[in-house]
Design a protein around this nucleic acid. Structure first.
Lengths: 386, 386
DNA sequence: TAGAATTCGTAAAGAGCCCAGCGTTATTGC
DNA sequence: GCAATAACGCTGGGCTCTTTACGAATTCTA
């Protein structure tokens, strides 16, 4: 254990990164503003900022017209477009790729429908096509991408595969990271979709103010993702949050209460049955209300286990059914009230079906950040694996 | 958000703390050794070490006889006895206080039996007496103590009370921190006993190599403590790990399988019934084996919920029944195999009934450390609350 | 329209810290 | 007693940050 001793070079590096932090996520800033944010003196801050410009991390914005009294200040802007990251959601029914810059601003996104029963080769080919289209749409080549994260269904083990379980046929033997490794030199991370959705909710969704979050995927599949102390938790084997595997927690069959609800017209296909049931329940339909009640009861058992285990600040309900949060949240709260010691606040996701891909972006950005703030920053260049 | 800018003072402080880290937990070290550990140059390291001696954090050990070739080196030793911390376990049947130095070396410990149904006043008086005796035995006064942690049964809320639930009669209205605040000026933390036991296992017990740990209290009460990513998790409201509150998890009644096992002789009192049953089960007694099987089955349901939620590396079984781990662990493993996706390693605690008090010590030491490494170190002085 | 006020940019001086290097000192081995 | 070894202690050099001061650019005000 080498207890990192710090010399002057490192000090300068730390302060440079400090200026980067003060620059990022803010509008173009004057040296005085940066100095206030970093706590450094104005001359030092200016030296750092000029160094960042020289390295390509920042640009100078010359004073504009709208000025107050005094000499107009030069402004520095973080070059969020110095690098980009790619987030991919390989779902059962769709594949969605999003490219963003280093600020997380979306540059381009591409999606494509796939069938749930598509074989792995087809699905991988579709993924490749979506990624290629997204790159083309953003006017980029693979080497412009600094980090890639792929969201898949099922728990992801340390090798990046879903060997334990996944609803996608034949997918357990697929290694998406290895597959993409042929095209991308950047680091590639594969992660479970529920976990990514949880990360997205904390980043841009309804849980930005919380550090302890249970995310519930309520849709044709049921799952969970956990954020504890502000960090996405994978578990030792990547299987954290898989409470649905407990037979007493009937998450596997929970959606069938909605899918098989009596009274659904033949004209409504399987994908829309749940939506029809929620609508009917709103109208007061007896069967629909019973189906919703049973669904919520099953959902709540697993949710209660998660809540009792972690005692989170917030439970976020996402997934396809969260569009009907208006008739889901109250009964869910009542069930948790019955089952738990302390009931956390329950909120409905608003990110829609992009949450997994957004979470993938967030993880890719985290990867970039950890390299930046870990090893120090030279000129902006796409990092390479190993 | 002030992005901490770093100036030279802070640099020196960081390096000084770096030397402290290199000094602590090691035998008296030469400057060359410290320089290697910290990565600093030898002259700088020496300056830091002499500064620590001047402040009272370290002492010089003059060269002894057993030397190798070359000029014998002066050695610096961390003054672990510069301060002390106090850990208290206020249990149902006993109260145990331990005082240790800053290295965690136990200086003195005192214990005293109490009855489960003792009223709060009696229990608090017993606690005061045990603490007073422990201080006297260590030759100290309250102001010598730098931090106090008290372990209690039941989930501890943010005010340091067990308002939600506790098996100790009348204890929900007690505020141990406030009570001790009259005597101690140092920071006082109150924490749940299972959580403290978990911390102890990672510190000095069987889980020193793991960062993700589920601790199971298996005894006359059943409970759990969680360590995730190396940190004890309290949950937003301090109720993490309270999976036993789920009625489907029959932790409350699980021990009764053992207590009420048919065939226990009248000569065996309630406290020893379980031990008798375990012994009988080892001998092959039919009723006893059934009782153990039922107990393990109930224990496993809650354990499985925790394991599926967190996917830990290790499950540690502690509490009074862990003395019979030889016939508990295998069936528990089989049950988890049946219920879980991935079964973690299961180990039996070896810390005995001191685990809660040891965990309390660990938390108190953490408190001291966070002040030390957070605010920087001046002369060693007992910190005061606020 | 000219000067005051304000704020920014930049240079120089000052202080602190770390490191490399070198001579000195204390011990062992021959 | 002398070489070899390893630690001690001092000095100079280089780097970084801060403070201070002064010139520059713009707005405000009389």
């Amino acid at each position: 254990m080498t207890t990192s001793g710090t010399d002057l070079n490192r000090l300068r590096e730390l302060n440079s990164l400090s200026v980067v932090r003060a620059l990022r996520g803010n509008p173009p800033s004057t040296v005085t503003e940066l100095a206030a944010r970093t706590g450094l003196s104005r001359p030092s801050t200016d030296v750092m900022a000029q160094g960042l410009v020289a390295d390509g991390w920042a640009t100078v914005v010359e004073p504009s017209g709208n000025s107050t009294v005094g000499r107009p200040a030069r402004r520095y802007r973080f070059r969020a477009d110095a690098g980009h990251v790619l987030g991919v959601d390989v779902g059962g029914h769709k594949i969605l790729a999003i490219i963003s810059d280093l600020d997380g601003t979306v540059v381009h996104s591409t999606r494509r429908a796939v069938t749930l029963d598509a074989d792995p080769t087809t699905r991988l080919a579709a993924m490749d096509a979506v990624i290629a289209n997204c790159l083309r749409g953003a006017g980029m080549v693979p080497d412009d991408i600094w980090a890639v994260t792929v969201g898949v269904t099922g728990p992801v083990d340390t090798t990046g595969r879903t060997t334990l379980f996944t609803p996608l046929p034949g997918w357990t033997s697929v290694n998406p990271a290895k597959h993409l490794g042929a095209r991308f030199a950047a680091p590639i991370v594969v992660e479970n979709d529920c976990k990514l959705a949880a990360a997205a909710e904390r980043w841009q969704g309804v849980a930005q103010d919380a550090d302890d979050i249970v995310y519930l995927l309520a849709g044709m599949r049921t799952g969970a993702g956990l954020i504890i102390d502000g960090t996405l938790r994978r578990g030792y084997g990547g299987a954290a949050g898989e409470i649905g595997a407990l037979r007493a927690v009937r998450w596997l069959d929970a959606p069938s209460h909605l899918q098989n609800c009596p009274g659904v017209p033949d004209s409504v296909d399987a994908d829309n049955a749940a939506a029809w049931v929620f609508a009917a329940a709103r109208e007061g339909d007896r069967h629909a209300r019973t189906a919703v009640r049973r669904y919520v009861r099953d959902l709540a058992v697993g949710a209660a286990a998660l809540v009792l285990t972690l005692d989170p600040q917030i439970v976020v309900v996402g997934g396809g059914y969260s569009r009907s949060a208006d008739i889901l949240l109250d009964p869910l709260g009542r069930e948790l009230e019955r089952l738990c010691l302390r009931v956390p606040e329950i909120r409905a996701s608003t990110l829609g079906d992009e949450s997994v891909a957004l979470g993938a972006l967030r993880l890719a950005l985290d990867e970039v950040d950890s390299r930046l703030f870990g090893t120090g920053l030279s000129a902006p260049l796409a990092p390479r694996r190993q």
